[in-house]
């Protein structure tokens, strides 16, 4: 098979004496969605934060396109075209959609001032594609619904040509219609060749959206399975018991 887009190798990170992530290795290929499953505190979010630059791992290696990389902060991650959509929606509530979309990467005029009109135009253009119902361009995102806020967060990742997308429970706060919208979007991004890590509690959603699933328990990797090879019960068993399903166990 081709070179993986991302290789997480033997990642370890501890807080105090507790090993939050203990020697975990996971790959991600272009055009693939890998689901990360596990209980609260299993270490999925912590693992992925090493990739997004929010945490620094204690030991291990991250490779992108086969080359080892250093990710010390979110800026490094962005420079490698890694984009995150966080569970807690990393939006500044007091700013409007355009300001949030371009946060940290504002478009500027010749004189170095932020170009509000151009940013609003770009935002309108991309929202037309992602969420045609979106109209509240002047309101602070505080005034938006969960789905609208989520589409702003996704627009941000899409606009800047992410190659690696990290989605931490992207549908946690959404209604059924909005969840479907996000699912369609994931399929679309997959077709464009992005690699996506999807962290979710919803086994059903993971089975439906992901190519492979990595299950974690108590900071350790239980195993990585192809979603086509397992049932939802198998996945549930992996999460609860921390063991590979029998028909896959070697």
């Amino acid at each position: 098979m081709a070179t993986p887009l991302v290789e997480l190798r033997n990642i370890c990170i501890a807080f105090g004496g507790i090993k939050a992530v203990d020697d975990v290795s996971v790959d991600l290929y272009p055009g693939e969605v890998v689901g990360l499953l596990g209980h609260n505190g299993a270490g999925k979010s912590t693992l992925i934060k090493c990739l997004s630059g929010a945490y620094r791992m204690d030991s291990g290696e991250i490779r992108i396109d086969g080359r080892p990389v250093e990710i010390n902060n979110p800026r490094d991650a962005r420079a490698l075209n890694i984009e995150c959509i966080y569970q807690t929606l990393a939006l500044a509530d007091n700013l409007d959609a355009a300001a949030n979309l371009f946060l940290g990467r504002e478009l500027v005029t010749r004189f170095g001032f932020v170009d509000e009109a151009r940013m609003e135009a770009e935002t309108r253009r991309i929202m037309q594609r992602l969420n045609p119902n979106f109209r509240k361009f002047a309101a602070p995102v505080k005034a938006l619904s969960g789905g609208q806020r989520q589409s702003v967060a996704i627009a941000r990742a899409v606009y800047f040509n992410a190659r690696i997308l990290i989605m931490d429970e992207p549908t946690a706060a959404l209604g059924p219609q909005e969840t479907r919208m996000v699912a369609e979007l994931i399929q679309e991004l997959k077709r464009q060749g992005l690699g996506i890590f999807l962290i979710d509690h919803d086994i059903h959603a993971v089975k439906e959206l992901c190519d492979r699933a990595a299950v974690m328990k108590n900071g350790q990797l239980v195993g990585v399975v192809r979603c086509a090879d397992v049932s939802e019960d198998d996945l549930l068993g992996m999460i609860i018991l921390g063991k590979m399903p029998e028909h896959l166990a070697v």
Binding site: P74, R78, L91, A92, N100, L103, R105
Partner: peptide, 8 residues
């Protein structure tokens, strides 16, 4: 947090 995560 959002500001920090946005690379500011």
């Amino acid at each position: 947090d959002a500001a920090e995560l946005s690379g500011i």
